[in-house]
């Protein structure tokens, strides 16, 4: 029943998130028709003529090169940008709140009076949150191969799963960080804002030469899979280890907290 409680506490955030990512996913898919009309003009630009000495030029060139076909368009617009940003935001939203929250109607003392350990409370809440995050990353991604024929295109299920998994695994880092911060701060907003700030810093840092290949968002986009058909295993393993460490820290922090 703890699962049910965790679900009731997070379901509105999850359902809003699911609606947003599904609508955004469809939006990107149907946007391809308009983009396709611009392709003849885009193809007249020779990427080699773009000055790539600065981050902006490199980004424009990368975008042009990637989006020459539907697969590249979906990867760049959806997995690299929209889905990554949305999952990061909803990971922070799903991880925020919880037992320490002083919001009215949370029944904190009632929960603590039940014969369960605090570790179990953290564990169940994390499991439900991660399952919701998994759905947010995978459901809209799997709708792409299903619905792309409606615009006369096709998209591989394997690609959708591979990219969705990358988004999910890195998204768990932001979820776990929000969970840890929520065992420290009694309000809902500070963990959320701090995680968003961390994500923004992580995104900006990726423009620093030399850091980009190891950046969280590069791993999240599954760029190595897109370009070389190989999953970024090291990045995914590091992200998973970071998530596990953050969740363990959350459980330890909660275990020692006074209410």
């Amino acid at each position: 029943m703890l699962w049910h409680k965790a679900w009731l506490e997070t379901r509105s955030r999850f359902l809003i998130g699911l609606a947003v990512v599904v609508i955004a996913g469809f939006g990107i898919m149907f946007d391809y028709r308009a983009t396709e009309k611009l392709m003849p003009f885009a193809r007249t630009i020779d990427p080699s003529t773009i000055d790539t000495s600065g981050p902006l030029g490199a980004t424009i060139r990368s975008a042009l090169e990637a989006q020459r076909d539907y697969r590249g368009f979906v990867w760049f617009q959806w997995f690299k940008q929209n889905l990554a940003n949305l999952v990061t935001l909803f990971a922070a939203l799903l991880g925020s709140g919880g037992l320490v929250s002083t919001a009215a109607g949370r029944g904190t003392l009632f929960t603590l009076s039940l014969p369960i350990t605090r570790s179990r409370l953290v564990g169940v809440r994390a499991a439900v949150g991660l399952a919701e995050l998994f759905a947010l990353a995978l459901v809209p991604s799997l709708l792409l191969p299903l619905c792309s024929p409606s615009i006369g295109q096709s998209y591989s299920v394997v690609d959708a799963v591979a990219h969705g998994l990358c988004v999910f695994v890195v998204g768990t880092v932001f979820f776990s960080l929000a969970s840890l911060l929520s065992t420290e701060f009694a309000d809902f907003w500070r963990p959320l804002l701090i995680v968003c700030l961390v994500a923004m810093v992580a995104a900006v840092v990726e423009y620093v030469p030399g850091i980009s290949p190891y950046g969280l968002f590069r791993v999240m986009s599954g760029e190595t899979y897109f370009r070389h058909a190989g999953l970024p295993w090291v990045g995914l393993l590091i992200s998973a280890a970071m998530s596990a460490t953050l969740l363990r820290a959350a459980a330890l922090n909660l275990a020692h907290r006074d209410f």
Binding site: K5, L8, G105, R106, L109, F110, P115
Partner: peptide, 29 residues
């Protein structure tokens, strides 16, 4: 806690559950 019943000072329960739901929830423990 397995052998103890508790009523806290704030009487705060779960706002998002009905009376029946919170009874069923508690009974499982």
């Amino acid at each position: 806690r397995r052998r103890t019943g508790f009523v806290g000072e704030d009487k705060e329960l779960y706002d998002y559950m009905t009376v029946e739901e919170i009874i069923r929830f508690t009974a499982t423990f």
